[in-house]
Design a protein around this nucleic acid. Structure first.
Length: 482
DNA sequence: CTTAGGG
DNA sequence: CCCTAAG
């Protein structure tokens, strides 16, 4: 019996969440609220629908309490809606479902539109499933004694509108769920809500009343507008489907996202602790790396990551660039996961994270410390905190840096180089060049010195340049013992 | 396993 | 970034 309130809470959360998300798309909400309020105050507007609803309730269920329940549901719907509009976490229940929490967290963490969108859809899915379940419960509650339940809970609840009754709540909420999916406008929303509440009130017998109601309503509603009817038909379909689903005893599917996130979170938290100990005790970075990555994957959210067995990366061509000059700082920046440019480069650069300046600095520092080629060492010491960035990545990045610096020096293909150099401040670039001269990366693109046409001599010159630097303290171990 | 090199 | 070959 306590399922009702729980569901209610979940629903309300869901709902507020949804509303909040919608907010991002449709900023002005106050008007909507006012609209809703007006609608509630003045029966004129929704007169038709309400009448129809009431009539149906009386006719089919023959219970006077139906009206009460209906009004309750209506009020509840409004309140929830308002609450959601006001502030989406104002209600702040403790016993949120994990997925709800996840959703919220995701919402906070990732302000990305795309992600939000996908999340919304998934949330809708979840919600629908929830609705199905709720409906089942509602039925059970409805069958025995409708009135008593309604009166009871509504009276005992501290805030009448909010905590409502089991039945009314389930009904109203379930009705509000698909409605917002169909449409966003409040008045229509409310109307639909009412209608569907009535629907759900009736169903002692499942299918026939539903369709009946719908059809009848359509007739009644014909003066309103086409849109509403279409919406309603959609909802009708949905209701039918869900009811059928309930009949088939379709339990609440875990939902892929749910599974992924929960598992990711679990593993993430477990692994975080593990990782620390492992990292300190053991230097075998391979394991640590994978764990780290999986952990980051959790914060990242759904989609890829652990799909790839060994190396799981994030996709995030990040536009913003960090101007952090601190070299030794362990990069907290790259822990941030960004998703953008949803579909276009997902195909190829599925997992890609822009190199931040601090990362580049660290890389350069590491190279100057350990020398070129000691990618694993650099990774271990300077990039141990960053899950991604395998030694290979470091090497690649260095290669790119070299190329960039070379390009810049050549002053050729100016647009490109500008684009490449845009992220590299002068000092960094100087350093890159310095390092580049110290230890020419294998198969250096020979662009080093523009005036020099001879590749070999170029290399020699760079080497020659490097020697004095070594004496200055630069580490060129690789060359020595290679 | 690590690195180099190419895609 | 990813994959592969070579030490």
């Amino acid at each position: 019996m306590d399922k009702g309130p729980l569901l209610l809470e979940n629903f309300s959360n869901m709902k507020s969440q949804r509303v909040k998300r919608d907010e991002t798309f449709v900023p002005p909400l106050e008007d909507e609220v006012a609209e809703v309020a007006r609608l509630l105050d003045e029966p004129k507007n929704d007169h038709v629908s309400v009448d129809g609803v009431l009539c149906f309730n009386k006719e089919n269920s023959g219970k006077s309490s139906g009206i009460e329940g209906f009004s309750c549901g209506l009020e509840f719907g409004f309140r929830t809606n308002f609450g959601g509009l006001d502030s989406y976490n104002a209600q702040g229940e403790d016993d949120l479902k994990l997925e709800v929490l996840d959703g919220l967290l995701d919402d906070v963490d990732e302000v990305d539109d795309f992600y939000a969108a996908t999340d919304i859809s998934t949330a809708c899915e979840d919600f629908l499933l929830d609705v199905e379940f709720a409906e089942k419960v509602t039925e059970l509650d409805c069958v025995p004694v409708e009135g008593s339940h309604l009166g009871n809970s509504s009276s005992e609840s501290h805030s009448p509108g909010f905590s409502g009754s089991n039945v009314a709540v389930g009904v109203s909420d379930s009705s509000t769920a698909p409605e917002s999916e169909c449409k966003d406008e409040s008045p229509d929303k409310m109307v639909t809500c009412e209608l569907r509440s009535s629907e759900r009130q009736i169903p002692v017998d499942e299918k026939s009343p539903c369709t009946n109601d719908v059809n009848n309503f359509d007739e009644l509603d014909n003066d309103d507008n086409v849109l509403l009817s279409s919406i309603f038909s959609k909802c009708k379909k949905r209701v039918k489907g869900s009811v059928l689903g309930t009949k088939v005893k379709r339990l609440r599917k875990p939902t892929q996202r749910y599974i992924e996130e929960s598992s990711d979170l679990k593993s993430g938290y477990l692994l975080r602790g593990q990782k620390i100990s492992t990292a300190t005790l053991k230097d075998k970075h391979q394991k640590v790396k994978s764990q780290d990555e999986s952990f980051n994957g959790s914060s990242q959210g759904p989609s890829e990551s652990w799909l790839r067995g060994g190396r799981s990366k994030k996709s995030s061509p990040m536009l913003g660039f960090e101007s952090n000059d601190d070299i030794s700082s362990s990069d907290t920046d790259d822990d941030r996961v960004r998703k953008r440019k949803s579909k276009v480069d997902v195909d190829r650069r599925k997992h890609q994270r822009m190199w931040t300046l601090s990362e580049v600095m660290k890389l350069i520092d590491g190279i100057s410390q350990f020398g070129v080629g000691k990618w694993t060492d650099i990774k271990r010491l300077l990039f141990s905190s960053s899950a991604h960035r395998t030694p290979i990545d470091l090497r690649d990045k260095w290669r790119n840096l070299l190329r960039a610096s070379c390009a810049q020096k050549k002053t050729k293909g100016e647009v490109e180089q500008k684009h490449a150099m845009r992220t590299l401040p002068k000092p960094v670039l100087c350093r890159i060049r310095e390092l580049a001269t110290i230890h020419p990366y294998p198969r250096v693109p020979n662009l080093k010195i523009p005036g020099n046409g001879n590749v070999v001599s170029l290399k020699q010159s760079t080497k020659a340049k490097g020697v004095p630097l070594i004496s200055r303290g630069r580490n060129v171990r690789r060359k020595k013992h290679t």
